[in-house]
Simulated assay, not measured.
Amino acid sequence: MHRTLENPPAPAREMVTEALEGALDDRSAADHTAEALVGIALHGDDRDFAEHCCVKTGTRAAPGSPLLGLTVLCLSHIARRFGRLSDEALDLARSLAQRAAADPADVDGRALDGYDDIRTFLHLW
Rank of each mutant, 00 (worst) to 15 (best):
R3T: 09
R3K: 10
E6D: 06
N7D: 05
A10Q: 04
A10N: 03
A12K: 08
E14Q: 11
E14I: 09
M15R: 06
T17H: 03
A19S: 12
A19M: 02
L20M: 15
L20A: 03
L20I: 11
E21L: 04
A23G: 12
L24I: 02
L24G: 14
D25L: 09
D26N: 08
S28A: 15
S28R: 12
H32N: 08
A34H: 05
V38I: 12
A41T: 15
D45E: 10
D46A: 06
D46K: 15
D48T: 08
D48N: 14
F49R: 05
H52C: 11
T59F: 05
A61N: 10
S65Q: 03
P66C: 05
L70V: 06
T71Y: 06
T71M: 04
C74E: 05
C74V: 10
L75F: 08
H77K: 07
H77N: 06
R80H: 13
L85R: 00
L85Y: 01
S86H: 07
S86V: 01
L92F: 05
A93S: 15
R94I: 11
L96A: 10
L96V: 12
A97R: 01
R99E: 13
A100Y: 12
A101H: 15
A105T: 06
A105R: 09
A105C: 13
V107Q: 01
D108Q: 07
G109C: 11
L112R: 01
D113E: 12
D113Y: 11
G114T: 00
Y115A: 00
I118Y: 00
T120V: 13
L122I: 02
H123S: 06
W125R: 11
W125C: 06
